[in-house]
């Protein structure tokens, strides 16, 4: 049951988007998100949609997969839309019922919010579908590398992230097993009063915690044994290196930013 949760799912197709340097994709996604929050008219979103659609098309990831990422946050989208719809003040009232009223401004704001959230999710999921978690972590480490000068442990954070990503499936499997083991001892997840239910949850969380700590201890030993001593003097098997397509992509991102913001704000 826990295996249904999907974090950073990777969908290999071997497209050119997959092969881009993760730093390009990080920058592209970041700027894309900024752009959609600056628009003041719908034309801007049309430009975004064309841009996003083209990227999705080139990536070869089926639209169905990308929309799947939206499903868990549908509630959030509806909720935010409703708040904007019903609680925006303005004179251009379209409909009124006691304290609730819908204004034209509200309608517009709600629509903007829905579009922004949808673009935000699809935009970032196209990044995770086309980049392995490890490459992404490398990209983050390298992009934030200059922060090391401020004594921010960028390498350590990146390593922690990649280790967490490696152990998530292992711990999920473990949780599944512990749930089954406690069910075998008569633990019941549906019936019983609140105290019984708490005891059942504890019977799963404690073993999971104990085992996670044990794994962490083992892993720390294994890393020590293989000469790990922090980021200093470390080399890379697969260092990130920009190629021609990455520079071209940066240009495309720049052109998109300038054109979409110009259209979205000033037309």
């Amino acid at each position: 049951m826990l295996r249904d949760i999907t974090i950073g799912q990777y969908y290999p197709t071997g497209s050119i988007i997959h092969k881009l340097d993760p730093r390009v994709k990080l920058a592209g996604t970041f700027l894309f998100i900024i752009s959609i929050f600056t628009f003041e008219n719908f034309l801007g979103y049309v430009v975004s949609l064309i841009y996003l659609g083209t990227v999705i098309f080139i990536s070869g990831v089926p639209l169905k997969y990308i929309l799947k990422g939206v499903k868990p946050i549908i509630f959030l989208i509806v909720f935010t839309a409703a708040i904007h719809l019903f609680f925006t003040s303005g004179d251009d009232v379209l409909w009124k019922f006691y304290a609730l009223k819908i204004t034209f401004t509200g309608l517009k704001k709600a629509a903007f919010m829905v579009i922004r959230l949808l673009f935000l999710i699809t935009g970032s999921s196209i990044m995770t579908y086309t980049t392995t978690p490890n490459r992404l972590t490398e990209g983050i480490e390298k992009s934030f590398g200059p922060l090391k000068k401020l004594h921010i442990p960028v390498h350590e954070f990146a390593l922690m992230m990649s280790l967490a990503l490696r152990f998530i499936p292992i711990l999920m499997e473990e949780a599944d097993k512990i749930i089954k083991a406690q069910s075998s001892r008569g633990a019941d997840f549906e019936e019983g009063n609140i105290f019984k239910k708490i005891s059942v949850v504890v019977s799963i969380l404690i073993p999971l915690l104990v085992s996670a700590m044990e794994r962490a201890r083992d892993l720390a030993l294994a890393m020590d044994a293989r000469c790990y001593h922090g980021g200093e003097g470390r080399t890379k098997m697969k260092p990130l290196r920009y190629t021609e397509k990455d520079y071209i992509s940066y240009c495309i991102i720049f052109v998109y930013m300038v054109s979409s913001v110009a259209i979205g704000r000033f037309i």
């Binding site: 406690q182 069910s183 019941d188 073993p207 085992s211």
Partner: peptide, 20 residues
């Protein structure tokens, strides 16, 4: 199922990980 599980006991692999 609860009664069944008390009659058919199942000991998992590495069962010490279920102690809590």
């Amino acid at each position: 199922k609860k009664q069944l599980r008390s009659k058919v006991g199942l000991v998992f692999q590495y069962p010490e990980y279920q102690l809590f």
